[in-house]
């Protein structure tokens, strides 16, 4: 008999939320592979996609151990429906253009940087270890994306306009980073999850700092979109998963 794992009713959805978010953003970034504007940057964004995929795998594998023998990372990624995914909505948005892609990465990497800096102190040893390992990767993601936000913001008139448009496109999607789900509130009592309210200011400060150098104007949302963690998604996620899950769904129970 397997011992029931304390907090697993909260810990499992928490891990899935973290895993889904990194998987879906990895997927979006990977769509650029072979199509980037500069060969070096194509390679750089693919690196980020690979890192995020690695983080997703660590988190799915951990969730699977909590869920029991019949689960594994692929079942969790490939055989759940859109209505079971818990990723942030910002990650499922289409790439649109390089400006939106880079800005989204910057928002997300800034968030991940402060988030993992806290999660590495989690009382859950596995999550702490994943956070610690991922933090080193995120330092690079943050440096790369900040540099590109600045370069494009302060580049040409055209690039500045495209970046400012990206700010507009993404303005409703960043508040969700800081909304606590029920499981996060529960897990916080045992110092497992991160108190998101404590990192919001740092995040905003980082954005302001980089935007000042990039000569960009930050826009606050009046209608934040925050359903992702509650499994309320856009059509974009359905389309993404139809593509991603096609082989597992078409040929069930096959080994690849």
């Amino acid at each position: 008999m397997q011992q029931p794992i304390p907090n697993s009713q909260f810990l499992i959805p928490y891990c899935l939320h973290l895993a889904d978010t990194t998987l879906i953003l990895s997927h979006r970034n990977s769509e650029w592979c072979g199509h980037g504007p500069i060969l070096e940057q194509d390679i750089a964004l693919t690196n980020i996609a690979l890192d995020l995929l690695g983080q997703a795998r660590n988190l799915y594998q951990y969730a699977a151990t909590l869920m029991g023998d019949e689960f594994d990372e692929d079942k969790l990624a490939y055989l759940r429906n859109p209505s079971e995914f818990k990723n942030h909505l910002i990650t499922e948005r289409p790439n649109e253009d390089w400006a939106v892609t880079v800005l989204r990465q910057f928002y997300f990497s800034s968030f991940q940087h402060y988030f993992y800096s806290e999660l590495k102190n989690s009382s859950d040893k596995q999550l702490a270890a994943i956070a610690n390992k991922s933090l080193k990767e995120v330092a690079y993601h943050l440096r790369w994306s900040s540099e590109w936000v600045i370069r494009l913001g302060d580049g040409t008139t055209e690039s500045n306009a495209k970046m400012q448009n990206a700010v507009e496109v993404l303005k409703d999607y960043t508040d969700e980073f800081f909304v606590m789900s029920n499981e996060e509130i529960e897990l916080l009592q045992q110092a497992i999850s991160v108190d998101l309210s404590t990192i919001k200011n740092n995040w905003q400060q980082k954005i302001n700092e980089v935007f000042a150098e990039a000569t960009l104007q930050f826009l606050y949302s009046t209608q934040p979109k925050i359903g992702g963690k509650l499994c309320q998604h856009t059509q974009y996620l359905t389309d993404l998963l139809v593509d991603m899950q096609v082989l597992q769904r078409t040929y069930p129970n096959s080994v690849w």
């Binding site: 504007p37 390089w98 302060d154 580049g155 040409t156």
Partner: peptide, 16 residues
């Protein structure tokens, strides 16, 4: 397409 869509990115990098 990749080359043309990316022109503004390369120009901005040079300008910066």
């Amino acid at each position: 397409k990749a080359w043309n869509d990316g022109a503004w990115v390369r120009e901005a990098a040079i300008a910066y």
